[in-house]
Design a protein around this nucleic acid. Structure first.
Lengths: 128, 128
DNA sequence: CTGTATCCACGATGATACTG
DNA sequence: CAGTATCATCGTGGATACAG
């Protein structure tokens, strides 16, 4: 599962490879936080109250590694680090927004569907 | 974390609630498999070789519960069950396709970025 | 054929303490 | 401030056997 620079393997598709990352728990949130302007580490941490430093660091590193965001260190004292969206990072914002729109639009619908599903008629509801 | 029909809690946002589901490992794949025509359980299982029955079942149940897909039982012998996209399920296909397009378009870019990142200049690469 | 039930492994994530 | 290190935990997901 290592030597896969080719598409011979049908599961080496970009979809899994790319979307698994940006679909991770915090990636999308972080990208949104950077939409308006660059942010420093602790500013992000404060803006996303329920993320641990550990996970925030990892998310930022992964996004940086993928070239979605850029990390800039300012040699101040104490040091400050600024994260910003790259051009590629910006290019995915419209898609994210469309997903948000869809979610908001369908949210009530989905919750209603869940309620009905959970209300008794589970699985094979031909019974009763 | 139960009585939350309101948006008072910033984390009751549709995004997490909706996207976490459709962003699950197999949901998107299943939705795509159903785009052309309804499929039966084992047909899906065969089309997605690396999914376990357990996970396929769970994915289908979750999507059904959310109203993304419909489950129809035909009282044949042996029984056959058909899964199909609901109208709401269809409505998300364009967004999925856009994500695919983005992934395919940026895949090379991202892989290149990863290579550079992994090639020595990890973390604070202001050196060199 | 279409699942369910169990057990288990692993990664993802959180909590906490420590560092440059 | 901006992390890293370490440990504990929890859910996701796979394997297998069983069932209607």
């Amino acid at each position: 599962m290592e030597s896969d620079s080719e598409f011979g393997d049908p599961c080496n598709c970009p979809i899994r490879d790319v979307l698994d990352r940006i679909g991770s728990k915090w990636a999308m949130v972080v990208v949104f936080m950077l939409e308006a302007e660059p942010q420093r580490f602790n500013m992000l941490a404060r803006s996303i109250p329920d993320v641990s430093k550990r996970m925030l660091t990892r998310t930022l590193r992964d996004l940086e590694r993928d070239g979605i965001i850029a990390r800039t260190v300012f040699p101040t004292n104490p040091p400050s680090v600024e994260y910003s969206l790259s051009e590629m990072g910006r290019s995915i914002l419209p898609l994210f927004w469309k997903l948000i729109d869809w979610s908001v639009e369908k949210h009530a619908n989905i919750r209603e569907s869940r309620r009905r599903f959970d209300s008794g008629f589970a699985s094979d509801a031909l019974l009763n």
